[in-house]
Design a protein around this nucleic acid. Sequence first.
DNA 1: GTGTTTGTTATCAA
DNA 2: CTTGATAACAAACA
Length: 298
Amino acid sequence: MPELPEVETIRRDLASSIVGQEISAVKLLFLKTAKNKAAFFVGALKGHKVAEISRTGKLLILKIKSKTKTEIQNYLLIHLKMTGQLILAAGAKKIGGGHSLGGNSFADSVGGELPNKYTRAVIEFKGGTKLFFNDLRKFGYLKIVNDLELARILKAGYGPEPLTPGLSAAYLEGKLKNKKKNIKAFLLDQKIIAGLGNIYVDEALFAAGIKPMRIVASLKALEVKKLYQEINKVIKKAIASRGTTFNNYVDSAGKKGNFSRLLKVYGRGKLPCPKCRQPLIKTKLAGRGTHYCDYCQK
DNA sequence: GTGTTTGTTATCAA
DNA sequence: CTTGATAACAAACA
């Protein structure tokens, strides 16, 4: 389940390896993964260079360099949804006389040849580097949009991000005023905060000592401030750990995230609460598995 | 065969 | 009209 820290980890890795590189071929192994018509999708990428890579929430945005001044500015959007992976395989290195040793880092860390049965698309670069888009459940997508469409998507669907000035305790106070939603659903809403998902919402609420089913309008100013601080803290730590691998998240080298062992409540079922040792509770809220401590969270 | 997993959207109800 | 809650999607595993 890639959330902000996982997508940011991938963004940083890709930025250092494919920015400036020219796309030589695009292969679609599952047509519906590309949200545009195949011919248009391939045409918009092939022969173009990657200008830069950014991210909004869980959405990865590759700016595609236009070939001429009049050519429209395109972006490749990549959303991993639940099970998407982006794996880079370096091109065969020319080493005099030697055989190619470990050219595929994915095989080294996870063990598997690429493409595999879940590979939905492959983007190949001139130097031989290949970017594999794997997605077991086919929820993820690739989509070419122009600058107008991108602006519209970002404006309509994404609120401020953690760790940016746009997200503040005051902003949250304004958003939750008079609202009757529970805080779990509130935090999962990308239009309110971009980038949080099920794992980090449960972790932030535990750290802030707030029960996930609390109605947002009932939160005291002090609780909102604490929540805001804990959201930033957990996201910052998770990025530093290169994300959380719970099911199948891996970075662009095929390696797992290190934050999993730092999780306090997510995926811990009825294990003792790390603070009070009472058994944690797992229930369902906002249609999602929800983990919390009935004693530590008020 | 059943229930569970989640990011996002679609749909329905209040 | 707004808001909120829930189903649906997809596929694999216990």
